[in-house]
Amino acid sequence: MSETCTEVLTVAVPVTDQDRAKSQFERLGLRTRLDAELQPGFRWVEMGMAGGGATLSLVRAGEELPAGINTGIRLGTPDARAAHAAVRELGFEVGELLDWETAPLMFTFRDLDGNRFYITEVGSQNS
């Protein structure tokens, strides 16, 4: 049987202000891949890491796609302790640094719309 799907391309994140959200994610190191009005009133802002991979699409929140969700999105970092401090300094609401013996270091943060994201240390002995 052939593969129907071969990769994750993008995940939509509902935001109330696409420019504000774009600026906030740029401070985390994401870069704009596409920013265009695809049809009247429908702007698509796609952001990703410099090295490629899946992207975040910052879409305008609405009744059918409200902001303030638990996105389930995990972002990777080589140093979760440093990232925890840096994300807090950038003004995000940051959760506790979870240091479990059986899992990599990780923590949550919320963007300006209250959307929850996760940052997990990659390349550590527990990951």
Rank of each mutant, 00 (worst) to 15 (best):
F92V: 08
L58Q: 04
L34S: 11
L58P: 03
E96T: 15
R88F: 01
D19L: 03
V122G: 01
G123K: 11
G53R: 09
V87P: 05
N70D: 15
F117I: 06
L90V: 06
R20T: 08
L38K: 10
L38G: 12
I69G: 00
G76I: 08
A86P: 00
D111F: 02
M49G: 12
F107W: 02
D113S: 07
R33K: 14
A67V: 06
L28I: 03
D19M: 00
S23A: 15
F42M: 09
S2V: 11
S23V: 07
S2K: 13
T77A: 02
D99S: 11
P14I: 04
R110S: 10
L75E: 07
A82F: 03
T102W: 12
S2M: 14
D99F: 00
H84V: 04
G95W: 14
P78G: 12
I73D: 00
L58C: 07
M49K: 07
E3V: 10
F117K: 02
L65P: 02
E101R: 13
E96S: 10
T102M: 09
M1W: 10
P78Q: 06
L56N: 02
A61K: 02
K22Y: 00
A50E: 14
L75S: 03
I119D: 00
G51E: 15
L90Q: 11
H84S: 03
L90W: 04
E7D: 13
T10C: 09
G68V: 10
P78R: 14
G51F: 02
R74G: 07
V122C: 05
L58N: 09
T120F: 02
F109E: 04
V11Y: 03
L9H: 12
E3L: 15
R110A: 12
P104L: 03
R33L: 15
G29L: 08
C5R: 07
T32R: 06
T32N: 03
A50I: 04
A67S: 14
V8H: 04
